[in-house]
């Protein structure tokens, strides 16, 4: 099952594990599959691992595209 809702990174330890906040629940996660991660980033989770970092700039771009759609309805 894919988890479409991103989780917020709240703790990163030296061994590349840490914790995320997923819809208010704190979950232990392994960050070994991705690079350049920092507290406050949003990540996509799968089977106990973070598999991708969310690009917040792209979120904004999609949202502005959607707003265009509504205005040109």
């Amino acid at each position: 099952m894919c988890l479409g809702i991103p989780a917020k990174v709240i703790e990163i330890k030296e061994d590349n594990t840490g914790k995320v906040d997923y819809l208010g629940t704190k979950i232990k996660v392994n960050f070994s599959l991705i690079d350049d991660i920092k507290v406050g980033d949003y990540v996509i989770l799968h089977a106990g691992f973070a598999i991708s970092k969310l690009d917040e700039k792209e979120v904004e771009e999609t949202l502005s595209l959607l707003k265009d759609f509504i205005e040109n309805k």
């Binding site: 991103p6 599959l33 991705i34 690079d35 996509i44 598999i51 991708s52 969310l54 690009d55 917040e56 792209e58 979120v59 771009e61 999609t62």
Partner: peptide, 16 residues
């Protein structure tokens, strides 16, 4: 799904 997917994917995971 650009907020999560890069064109090249995740090379680190692929290598693993």
């Amino acid at each position: 799904y650009k907020r999560a997917v890069r064109p090249e994917g995740n090379p680190k995971a692929m290598n693993m």
